[in-house]
């Protein structure tokens, strides 16, 4: 039988959730036995080569590019999972949600102490190649349909392991209290 295929992505996240996935210790060997990885920063596959069973998304959407990647994942993954607080509710990046985009950009490129004296022409980066900032950070499920949510910042490695094995074996997820946390 063919092994189930997993894809992962980090959108507006810090890679902490990916780190946590690698933090399952020696069980990582079991995992590699159990599944194949497709598009993922873990193996650096950049385009979907095939349809996947499970997509793990870290981070919310803060750029148009995040939206495109997320939609791509939705189109290629049977089950899509929001992993971590950023994917679930925007996380720290979403702390900008009460501030206008213009203000954010101006602070980052014009007024912030580290740029104030260097951006002589007072330019907000506007190259057509650059991704565009969204008006706010969106949790993944406010953009596409998400099937499961694994909380934590990052989610505990044990939580990820249990959730993954449950999904792979078509079992109900049993997430123990000690590892079910938002921080």
């Amino acid at each position: 039988m063919e092994k189930p295929v997993i894809a992962t992505a980090s959108l507006a996240g810090c890679f902490g959730c990916h780190m946590s996935l690698l933090d399952i210790d020696e069980r990582i060997l079991d995992l590699i036995e159990l599944v194949d990885f497709n598009k993922s920063p873990i193996n650096d596959i950049k385009e979907f080569a095939r349809e996947c069973d499970i997509g793990l998304i870290e981070g919310g959407c803060c750029l148009d590019e995040n939206v495109h990647v997320l939609k791509d994942f939705r189109n290629h993954c049977r089950i899509l999972v929001s992993v971590g607080e950023c994917a679930i509710m925007g996380g720290l990046p979403a702390m900008r949600n009460g501030i206008s985009v213009r203000e954010c950009l101006e602070e980052a490129y014009l007024n912030g102490p580290s740029v104030r004296n260097y951006n002589e022409n007072k330019i907000l980066p506007n190259d057509e190649e650059l991704p565009v900032l969204l008006n706010r950070v969106y949790p993944c499920h406010e953009v596409v349909k998400i099937d499961y949510f694994l909380p934590g910042c990052p989610p505990d490695a044990d939580l990820l392991w249990r959730a993954l094995t449950a999904l792979l074996n078509n079992r109900k997820m049993d997430l123990p209290y000690e590892v079910f946390k938002f921080d």
């Binding site: 939206v67 985009v101 950009l105 057509e128 900032l133 499920h141």
Partner: peptide, 25 residues
């Protein structure tokens, strides 16, 4: 069956205006 209501054009308007970019996404 599912529509999150997300609107990319609307979500990018502010940044496009702020940076003076023209291309619509």
């Amino acid at each position: 069956r599912y529509d999150s209501g997300f609107d990319l054009t609307q979500a990018t308007q502010e940044a496009i205006a702020a940076t003076g970019r023209y291309t619509a996404v």
